[in-house]
């Protein structure tokens, strides 16, 4: 699957916030073999390019950067932040977050669609952080998005895929659109599950950054994503209610 015409080297996207140090962040990115790293642009940092020292450490990682508009609550804020990010990181990719509720950090899907339209018309390649709602997804595609990033659960909650049915329906409904589970993944089995559903990538931040050993957890996620992807491609069996012995019992020799 191509993301705005670009293949990812790995379906693991890694956020760069909240690590104990930039050095530990760097080791996590290496262990994850991340295909993309996301960077949030805070206003304090953007002015006078005061975040330059940290950003140059990020650039030294040599992984494609997907800037995001984390913490923006309005369309205007998100659009302004996207423009600053384009200037700072010299990329037209933007992970668009418009937060609707500060307690659950769930997206304001109305503002999201509007901001996605404005930014797409302005040449941005928008990666919208959305819910698993099908109709919102349609609107985002109509607004110009070519990638969708539905949540698994609220940001930083680590609760995994709260609505597996909804995520599966989204996959079935949009077989040709790159889909990324963004937010809510807590442990590697959650990431494997998303990949088994046929998702094209997962985005992890807190689960790695706040682990006791972020580099080891990054490696665990890399393995889980690889396992889940392979499982999806291998066409897993269907679950069934009754046991189905893998070896016929009839005619089996009595050895005991």
């Amino acid at each position: 699957m191509l993301f705005y015409g670009t293949p990812l080297t790995s379906p693991l996207m890694l956020g760069t916030a909240q690590y104990p140090s930039p050095e530990i962040l760097a080791s996590a990115v290496r262990e994850a073999q991340a295909g993309v790293i996301t960077v949030s642009l805070r206003r304090e940092s953007a002015g006078q390019k005061a975040g330059q020292a940290f950003w140059s450490l990020i650039r030294e990682l040599n992984v494609p950067v997907l800037p995001n508009t984390a913490g923006c609550h309005t369309v205007k804020e998100a659009v302004t932040t996207a423009h600053m990010a384009r200037e700072v990181f010299e990329t037209d990719w933007i992970k668009l977050e418009v937060i609707g509720d500060s307690d659950t950090l769930q997206p304001d899907v109305f503002g999201l669609v509007e901001a996605a339209r404005i930014l797409s018309e302005d040449g941005f390649k928008v990666f919208p952080y959305t819910t698993e709602d099908l109709v919102v997804a349609e609107r985002l595609l109509a607004a110009g998005c070519e990638v969708l990033m539905p949540w698994g659960a609220p940001i930083g909650s680590g609760r995994g895929l709260n609505n597996v049915f909804g995520l599966r329906a989204l996959r079935a409904h949009f077989p040709d659109v790159p889909l990324v589970v963004d937010a809510g993944i807590g442990v590697p089995s959650h990431a494997a599950q998303a990949m088994e559903l046929g998702y094209d990538a997962v985005l992890i931040n807190t689960a790695v950054a706040k682990a006791g050993d972020p580099a080891l957890m990054a490696r665990a996620f890399r393995l889980a994503v690889e396992a889940g992807k392979a499982a999806f491609e291998a066409d897993p069996m269907e679950a069934r209610d009754m046991a189905a012995p893998s070896t016929p019992l009839l005619g089996r020799p009595m050895l005991a």
């Binding site: 805070r42 206003r43 304090e44 940092s45 002015g47 006078q48 005061a50 975040g51 330059q52 020292a53 940290f54």
Partner: peptide
């Protein structure tokens, strides 16, 4: 704790 070298007033 903000990765920024802006030492301007508090937000």
């Amino acid at each position: 704790m903000i990765e920024s070298e802006n030492d301007g007033p508090m937000t």
